[in-house]
């Protein structure tokens, strides 16, 4: 009986089952803790693709101070960042660079498309050098509308992203 149970193929199955059980046991509390950590330390890359960067700068100004909601100032190296805010128009020349920056960032990573240009091309819908939205280059999590969006709108977008992270499963 015991021999049947402990033959090599079965052991593997038991081990995998055990790990499943373990993961199920710790996933919820641990995942909550990890996501909680991620929510309040969103670190954006300093990559400016368009003119919304002015309002992004205003969002870290003393009046709006997006840092108090857990979005840090964009001064870090992209190897330690986990968020790209696509600040407006993505041109054909910028698109490969945007993708390159996205590919270099470590997982998990999130993308906010800020401004009408980053969502659909906006005012520049018929321009020869502008892509119709950032989602043809990078997968976008949250869209922040406006041209340019007010800093309050960006803060709301930040909240939406935090809500999304809170409800997502850890990998």
């Amino acid at each position: 009986m015991l021999k049947d149970l402990v033959n090599p193929t079965n052991v593997n199955i038991y081990v995998s089952k055990l790990s499943d059980v373990l993961i199920k046991a710790v996933e919820e509390p641990l995942g909550y803790a990890i996501n909680w950590g991620r929510i309040y330390s969103l670190w954006p890359v300093h990559l400016e693709t368009g003119c919304c960067s002015v309002e992004f700068g205003a969002a870290s100004s003393p009046r709006y101070d997006v840092e108090r909601f857990g979005m840090l100032e964009a001064f870090g190296s992209l190897r330690q960042c986990d968020l790209i805010v696509v600040l407006g128009t993505v041109t054909r020349k910028m698109a490969p660079r945007l993708r390159m920056v996205y590919d270099q960032m470590p997982e998990p990573k999130y993308v906010i498309a800020m401004g009408a240009c980053a969502i659909t091309g906006g005012l520049y819908l018929d321009s020869y050098n502008v892509l119709p939205g950032a989602d043809s280059v990078v997968p976008v999590d949250v869209y922040v509308p406006g041209c340019p969006p007010r800093p309050e709108t960006l803060i709301q977008g930040c909240f939406l992203l935090q809500e999304k992270i809170k409800r997502s499963k850890i990998k």
């Binding site: 693709t49 003119c51 128009t89 041109t91 321009s127 050098n129």
Partner: peptide, 14 residues
């Protein structure tokens, strides 16, 4: 330069 070249001059002709 030219990372935000959006073709304003061409667009304004239309």
């Amino acid at each position: 330069i030219g990372y935000v070249h959006r073709g304003e001059e061409k667009m304004s002709e239309h």
